[in-house]
Design a protein around this nucleic acid. Sequence first.
DNA 1: GACCGTCTCCCCCGTGCGGGGGAGGTCCGT
DNA 2: ACGGACCTCCCCCGCACGGGGGAGACGGTC
Lengths: 218, 218
Amino acid sequence: MPVTVLLVDDEPLVRAGLRAVLEAQPDIEVVGEAADGAAVIPLVRRLRPDVVAMDVRMPLMDGIEATRAVLRTVAEPPKILVVTTFEDDEYVYEALRAGADGFLLKRARPAEIAHAVRLVAEGESLLFPASVRRLATRYGDGARPARAVLERARLTEREAEVLRLMARGLSNAEIAARLVVGAETVKSHVSSVLAKLGARDRTQAVIAAYESGFVEAG
Amino acid sequence: MPVTVLLVDDEPLVRAGLRAVLEAQPDIEVVGEAADGAAVIPLVRRLRPDVVAMDVRMPLMDGIEATRAVLRTVAEPPKILVVTTFEDDEYVYEALRAGADGFLLKRARPAEIAHAVRLVAEGESLLFPASVRRLATRYGDGARPARAVLERARLTEREAEVLRLMARGLSNAEIAARLVVGAETVKSHVSSVLAKLGARDRTQAVIAAYESGFVEAG
DNA sequence: GACCGTCTCCCCCGTGCGGGGGAGGTCCGT
DNA sequence: ACGGACCTCCCCCGCACGGGGGAGACGGTC
């Protein structure tokens, strides 16, 4: 029987590409897609895929967190194949610690992509040589701002709602009116958001929202 | 008759994704693919596509060079739609200077991608689909031809520089230090930027910068 | 029952921000 | 020679913002 795969990536284009590449393989079947890590667990429970092809950077819950969540909560977890661009290989180490089984670069050729899926499905772990080499040299430096944003972005629902409105240019008073709460309450939420995002002011918070994909341009 | 498209991207995954997205459209047909800018000219000559979807970053000849080459050497050149994930807005200007007709982010939704292809095929120039239109309507300028985002917002060089730093989360004092001018000067520029963008505060200005593609989310 | 996280609201307080003016300088095109 | 952008710096002023506290109410968990 074919290897079943669940695709998790916030970019529809990448999902379409992976689907096209993998479905061209007779022994691989794409059984589902998700646009964010937050949606993964129920899908894994329902679809029971052999492999989850997981993007690293996603709006609500990144691939690292999602990997941890799946491995922690699902009884017979699927293999996790982390899909990433070579630019953000700072994530490699984190992903491996989270329990990912394999690593794949988006710029890989179709045959390599399919090969990677087969390998992790069989229980082999695989890494891309270049990535591994670099993580050895990179590991040790501290400053990783983009990572910090995603990791600390443990926003509550209300905070996320406030951030969304902040990212639409609303003032605290306007947000308060919109949410039908007091201005003090909004200030409180804003402060939490700033703290969790490591932002100094609302402008930096909005930047983080865009950069992390929490809100999308266009 | 359908709009014919030539895909130029070094990553097969992206080509597969674009092909999947575009071929789902009844009025768009992918007539060819190339993995590098160096291969574009003969393909354009032979296939005569309406639109070339061109990646910026490629091994042998990048999208900017390839765009120049095509427009310089082909008699009736196709429309060039530059496709990129690249953060650096320098590429936007370079691409537009090179004669590109449109600009598209890879993280766009399928409908937007298809829409972008149709628009440039019809001779409309577009930078970032929904956002630029917003700018155009808001500032009501009539000048349509492929101009930089800068000129659409009518920002001066200095103002654009200040906006770029604002969009990186810098305070007025930090911008002043960076540009080696007085804080009052920065305030002055910021005020101009806010006025020209129709923004109430720096947060709204930064939002406009992202939405217009003046800066890109990474 | 005790505990914790979340949402809600409240105080004080300093300051960065933005609006409204103005003014001197250069460089440009006419 | 003159106007007109543009960049630079300056004044006053009001206020939204953000920090640092705290507190009551609700819903879960242990």
